Every structure is written in C-alpha cells, then in structure tokens.
Amino acid sequence: MNTTGDLLHVVTADDLPPARVALGRALIWGSGVLLVALFLLQMAQSMGWMTPWFETWRPTLYAYLTWAACLCWGQVLMRGEQGKRVLFVLPAVLFVVSLTVFPLLFGILIALSDWNLSSPTGRQFNGVANIVQMWHDPFYWNALGNMAWYCLAIVVEYTIAFGLALLLNAEIRARKFFRVAFLLPLMLSPVAVSWMIGKSMLEPRFGPLARLGRALGWDTPSFFGDPVIAKLTIMAMDAWTYIPFMMIMLLAGLQAIPREVQEAARVDGASGWRGFWEVTFPLMLPVSVTAILIRIIFKLKLADIVINVTSGGPGGATDTVTSFIFREYRDRSNVGYGTLLAMVYLVVIVIVMTILMKIADRFTRPQT
C-alpha cells in the first residue's frame, strides 16, 4: 500500500472477505423482498382484493426504514471505503425518494378509486372509470383550452415587460423610483389582487371603473358577465401582477450587455430599431427564453384570481385546470376524480415544458 502523499485524500482498495460481501447482499435483498411483499400486500387490501390485515400503512413505512438502514449498512459491507463515501449521499437520496415516490404511488392509487367524501361507502377501487369520465368531461377540456389562451397572453406580457425594461434601462429622470414603483404589483399576493381589483375596483355597481364605464356611455358595465370580457379581465389582472417579474429579469439582462457592444453597433450605423433587432434582441434571447419559461410555469398554476373573482364563470369561460380541480375537491368532495385530473395535468405540464425547453435550447444555443 502506498504510504506517501496526502493520506486524507487517498481511498485504498479493501481486500474484503467473501463472507462479508455475502452478508451485505443478504441484508439488502432480504430487506428489499420484505419491503416489496408488504407493499404489495397492503396495496391489494387497499384495492379490496383481500381481507385487510393492517389498519394503516405503517408496516410499509417501517419496512422502508429497515430497507434503507440495511442498504446503507450493506454498502459498507460490500464496498468498504467506497461504501462509506456513498453514505454521504445515499441517506439524502432515500429521504427524497420517500417524499416523492411514495406520495406519487399513493396519489395514483387514489386516482384509480371512487372516493367521494360525502359517500358512506368510503373509497372504492374503480380502475379506469375516472379516466373514462375525464375523457367525456367537457368542463375539463374547456379548462385546458382556456389555459392555452392564458399562455398565449404571455406574448403580450413579454412585449410590455421588454418595453418597460428598455425604458428603465435608459437614462431617464427618477429611474430608481420607477423601478421600485413598477415592482409593487409583484409584492402583492394574487389573493390581494383579486379582492383589491376584482372585487372592489371592478365591482359592477359601485366600483370606480364601473362608474367610469357608465360615464363613458357603457350602460351596464359588467367585467365578468360576458365570457370574452371576463377572460380578458382575468388575463389583465394576472398580467398586472406578474409583468414586473419578467421586467426585472429582462432589465438585469439589459444591464449585463457590455456598453462597448452597443457603442460598436452605433459606430457601424446600427442605431434605433436596427440596433435593437440586430444587436440587443439576439443578445437578450437567453434571458428572454428563461423569463418566458418561468412565466409559463406560473401561468399553468393560475388559480387564486379565478377562484376568488369568478369561480370559473360565466359558464366556465375563465376556468383554469387548477381552479376546476379545486372545485372538484371543495364543492363536490370528489377526491378520486380530482386526484386523477391533477395527475393528468402534471403529465401534461411535464410534456409541454420538456418540448418548450427543447425548442428554447435551439434558439439559445451558441452559433459556431
């Protein structure tokens, strides 16, 4: 064995006896078989396929903790010093798995069940019945269509945010004041925005904007009575809240552009619109794509404003998938069907965001 050098950073290969390695494998596989057997047993009794043996899922939890301990111990027995290095990461991985995989499996079990909290029969496994119901549910597909329109509104939000960022990046008076003032909507919660604007300023009888509409000749101002106007109003309220978020990201990107690049473009004759389109905008593409993707993520979970202001009305015109799922839980107490809708929506979000990130990578990839 080499005894020279820094021994604190040298991991030597251990000559492990076969019996020790066999013990490590036996611990891991034995505890793993126990975990799988208990999980399948409790899954079968949860679906009503056999007489219940356990009242709760605690046996599976204890089996998982036992398997985790045996896995860590087995790594040391089988790999020696290398196994000890694994212990720096393995407990954290097992903890993350316990917080993600088990809730996901339990959610899938609920999604495949007929579970209404107002029903005296409790939860009953019904297979793909919830999937068939979702497929023929026009209100859910209407909410998905509304989400497409809400996401398309991000194009307008991005344009406004970029314009404000360019304005605040210019040499104007009271620039610091305007930067703080434009960030104020972002400091408010969506619930506060929905009550402050949707329930107060846009109130059809006594709201100031309704009075202004009557003064301008609008006989019966109703911002949430007409489906098109209601959807546009929800878009405007949500945009007013989150445009500052995109603006501050774009402003940071503009300030990161070296002034030498812009001065060189002006020397070459690229000024005004041409300088923006050929110099500033291409350099801002990575920041722009990042801001748009994050904004899409925020938009896909839009619910607070809709729930507090319109509850999805009129006739589902302003409904989002999240607000529709919320009403399935709150108003109909339909836990099984609501969980299935949430699971499907999660899959849709993952697929859409993966595609968008692939497309965005092509635009932001450096050209060689």
Rank of each mutant, 00 (worst) to 15 (best):
L41V: 04
R173K: 15
M246S: 04
L232T: 04
I349D: 00
A252F: 02
D6K: 01
H136G: 14
L94P: 07
L164W: 03
R25V: 12
D14F: 13
L41G: 05
I154A: 04
N142Q: 15
L212W: 10
A252W: 06
F324G: 08
L27V: 03
G107K: 11
I172E: 11
F95Y: 15
D361Y: 14
R25S: 14
F162D: 06
L8G: 13
T318R: 00
A148P: 05
A210E: 06
T220C: 08
M357E: 13
L346I: 14
S113W: 00
R85L: 13
I160G: 02
K231Y: 08
M246L: 10
V96Q: 12
I108V: 09
R25D: 14
R295L: 05
F102H: 11
L346D: 13
I160H: 03
D226C: 04
E157F: 11
I351D: 05
T60Y: 09
P208F: 08
S271W: 12
I257W: 09
P190Q: 09
G5L: 03
V347Y: 05
A239V: 02
F39V: 09
M247P: 01
L356W: 03
T310I: 08
G275C: 06
T56L: 02
I257E: 08
T368L: 15
V287Y: 00
W218F: 15
P185N: 05
L104V: 12
L216F: 04
L356G: 01
G145F: 12
F326D: 10
T364N: 07
P17V: 11
M147R: 00
F95R: 15
